[in-house]
């Protein structure tokens, strides 16, 4: 159950990254997982080249942020006003390109990825490894930092405003285009954290994020795709549920179908998610 929480942290991060782009553009970034996977490979390459873990971690975040910004500016911007199907096509194209690129550069053989935390059990606990505890700490820290950024900084406020009402945002002098690019950058960096935290468990290969993206998406939908904090909470909940269901209900082989069941269930019964928009409308 506690290790469910650790996986939940990863799903929460992915969910948050998805929501960040969804709120700004109303599109689900299907390439989110592959972006995170690619970032993880960058981290692996740096560690392999002799960088200390946390230096590689930090540099990977910077790289992922800039890559996110670049993807928005170069690939997404030109299709901004295109029909939904075109954009979905672009995202799927991006997914395939990143996947093949990673395979081509780093080969498809599965690699192990180091954990910054000791490999022993956590204070002799039977239930949790130190890495799992570390994962929870790292992902929670990221979530809290993101929360503080959006809640208390002028740039965070401007990004929320730009997502909500681009026309009005321009009228107060916000460069809306750059806010969208920053959103992609942040999503890229948050995804990278998820990738680097997941890699020691799922191992590093170009398809490592496919299952995680599905769980992250389920978490985002469950919590409410319009509510970042709901989505993060949804991510934790999915991690928890996955573990319980995997252990006691459907067994490990069918675990992934739990995510699908959640997605379908939420879309059918409560499309806004558990913590969907709490906007009060004037009647």
């Amino acid at each position: 159950m506690l290790s469910g929480l650790a996986n939940g942290g990863i799903y929460a991060s992915v969910a948050l990254a998805l929501v960040m782009i969804y709120q700004a553009t109303h599109h689900v970034n299907f390439a989110q997982g592959e972006m995170a996977m690619f970032s993880t490979y960058i981290a692996w390459a740096m560690i392999d080249a002799g960088f200390p873990y946390w230096a590689a971690f930090g540099l990977t975040l910077v790289f992922s942020f800039m890559a996110g910004v670049a993807i928005e500016r170069i690939i997404v911007r030109p299709v901004e006003r295109a029909p939904v199907l075109t954009i979905v096509g672009v995202f799927i194209g991006l997914l395939l390109i990143l996947n093949s690129l990673a395979g081509w550069i780093f080969s498809y053989t599965i690699k192990s990825f180091p954990s910054p935390f000791p490999s022993t059990a956590w204070y002799g606990s039977k239930y949790m490894s130190s890495h799992e505890v570390g994962m929870i700490v790292v992902t929670l820290t990221v979530l809290i930092l993101v929360f503080i950024f959006f809640r208390f900084t002028p740039l965070g406020l401007a990004m929320r405003a730009a997502a909500q009402n681009p026309v009005s945002s321009r009228l107060v002098g916000i460069r809306v285009g750059w806010m969208l690019a920053f959103g992609w950058g942040l999503a890229g960096a948050i995804g990278a954290v998820a990738g680097m935290m997941a890699a020691p468990i799922v191992y590093l290969d170009p398809n490592m994020m496919s299952g995680i993206l599905l769980y992250g998406f389920a978490g985002a939908l469950l919590g409410g795709i319009n509510n970042p904090w709901g989505a993060a909470l949804g991510g934790f909940f999915v991690g928890f549920l996955e573990n319980i269901a995997g252990a006691y209900v459907v067994g490990t082989e069918l675990k992934l179908s739990v995510a699908l069941a959640i997605i379908v269930g939420v879309l059918v019964f409560k499309p806004a998610g558990l913590f969907g928009p709490t906007l009060v409308a004037r009647v």
Binding site: L157, R160, A161, Q164, N165, V167, S168, L171, L279
Partner: peptide
Amino acid sequence: VPDGRGTFLDL
């Protein structure tokens, strides 16, 4: 101050 006021309703 635009036509329709341009309020950020969720903020």
